[in-house]
Simulated assay, not measured.
Amino acid sequence: MEEIILKALGETLIMVFASTIFSVIIGFIPAILLIVTSDEGLRPNKVIYSILDFIVNTLRSFPFIILMVIVMPLAKIIVGKTTGIFATIVPLTVAAAPFVSRVIESSLKEVDKGVIEAAKAFGASDFQIIFKVMLKEAVPSITSGITLILISIVGYSAMAGTLGAGGLGDVAIRYGYQRFEPDIMIVTCIILIIVVQAVQFWGNYFYKRLSK
């Protein structure tokens, strides 16, 4: 049983960190467009902002289990199957990406407007303002937000176990619940708590380092 739990832990970590990386990459683009086209952005555009705002809010409104079922055909196209850890990375990424967009957008909004105006006064381009001023200033806040998203994805990955995703959630359901082995359920819950605590610890550590 120890081998099964260790394997499940490895699967959970793969799902969590891979989907986090992909969601940050995918969520970064709409986040930049949202901040640039907002009313107080560098290039205000109400149409583009409204469309992106609607899409992000719509994706955020879906409960993860429902979203996972909806995204299964996409997972089938990308990885060739609808179950297993690699197939589950797809819905985890889709679920997390809009949250990443909001985290980055909110962090960029917190950047001191005086710093942005100073950059404009020195003749900085929009690209330079976004990537060399705003993002640089917002890195600590973004790091804190990504930590929360990582923790959320840990929870999502456990829920995905009910649909054959693998990982600790799958072990808890198959062995702890369906086979009436409460010890397995307790162990998997403890491991998930440890994972969450570890993510929060390192998130806080990097936040403090980057804030100096």
Rank of each mutant, 00 (worst) to 15 (best):
N45W: 02
F64T: 15
P44G: 11
V47T: 09
I142C: 01
A95W: 01
V79F: 05
V47N: 04
E105T: 06
A118V: 12
V94G: 00
K120V: 04
A119L: 14
L148S: 13
F131Q: 07
S141F: 07
V115E: 15
K81L: 08
I78C: 13
V94R: 00
K46W: 15
T83V: 13
S101V: 08
F99T: 03
Q128D: 13
V90T: 08
K81M: 13
P73E: 06
N57S: 12
I70A: 08
V115Q: 14
G145S: 05
T143N: 07
P73I: 02
A124G: 10
A138E: 03
S50N: 14
P98S: 11
I151F: 03
G123E: 05
T82L: 03
P73R: 03
T93H: 09
L67V: 13
S50L: 12
S101I: 08
P140C: 07
V111E: 01
V56D: 07
A95I: 02
K46F: 14
L135V: 12
Y49Q: 10
G80N: 14
S152L: 09
L108Q: 06
S125G: 15
E105A: 12
L135Q: 11
I151R: 04
T83A: 09
S152C: 02
Y49T: 06
G145R: 08
A124K: 13
D112V: 07
K113H: 14
V115M: 15
A87V: 03
A121I: 04
T88I: 12
S106R: 09
K46T: 11
S144M: 11
P91Q: 02
S50M: 10
E105Q: 13
V133N: 10
T143K: 01
T88F: 11
T88K: 10
N45V: 01
L59F: 11
K132W: 05
A87Q: 03
D112A: 08
F62Y: 09
Q128N: 15
M68L: 11
K81E: 13
V56R: 05
K136M: 14
M68I: 08
A124H: 15
A121Y: 01
V79R: 06
V69G: 02
K132G: 11
Q128K: 13
I129R: 12
D126Q: 13
V47G: 00
D126G: 15
L150G: 07
I104A: 00
I151K: 04
I66S: 05
T83H: 02
M68S: 10
T143Q: 03
L135I: 12
K81Q: 14
